[in-house]
Computed example of a mutant assay.
Amino acid sequence: MLTPVTDADGAPFWQYAARGELRVQTCADCAEPRFPPRPCCPHCQSFASEWRLMSGRARVWSYVVPHPPLLPDYAARAPYNVVVVELADAPRIRLVGNVVSHAGAALDSVAPERIRIGARVQAVFADGMPQWVLERA
């Protein structure tokens, strides 16, 4: 598993994720959410920020299914999905991850043909990493 590279701006995202919380950096002055985290609001140029708790609901905005050749640690798991999700609480915020059958499941635990653009997903967490599970219709 790849581990996140953190910096001072993004470290709180990973600290909250380790607690099972999906939070997004938000401008404390204009209330505009932003991702990736950064020191200054791109909308109003304020340096004041807070970390807003999200519901974890999202929809698949895009996805790919990588096939070998891949990084050696991932080749044995292929094919698997890599999704870009759009948060329901902040539609301009998009996060990258994987759709899995349950928190902590293998990257290949959901058949690629089950993934659809627009599918509703919910955030789950395993080892401090956000993952996504398909919502039941």
Rank of each mutant, 00 (worst) to 15 (best):
R136Q: 15
Q25S: 04
P33C: 08
V110T: 01
Y80C: 06
A31R: 10
L71V: 12
D73Q: 15
I117N: 13
V60C: 11
V82D: 06
M54K: 01
A88Y: 07
E21G: 05
E135T: 00
T3M: 07
T3V: 10
H102A: 15
A90N: 06
P37M: 06
A75N: 10
E50Q: 11
Q131D: 08
P42F: 09
D108S: 14
D127V: 00
A58N: 09
D89Q: 05
R92G: 07
V100I: 13
R38T: 02
P37T: 04
V100Y: 06
S46F: 02
A28H: 03
A11L: 15
C41F: 05
S109T: 12
D89K: 06
R92S: 10
D89W: 06
S55C: 08
V99K: 08
V110Q: 04
V133K: 02
I93M: 08
P4R: 02
R34W: 11
C27T: 05
A8W: 09
F47P: 11
W132I: 01
Q122N: 04
I93W: 11
Y63M: 04
A105T: 13
R57Y: 06
F13S: 02
P12G: 01
P68E: 11
V65W: 05
V85W: 08
A31T: 09
D127W: 01
Q122P: 01
A106K: 14
A119S: 15
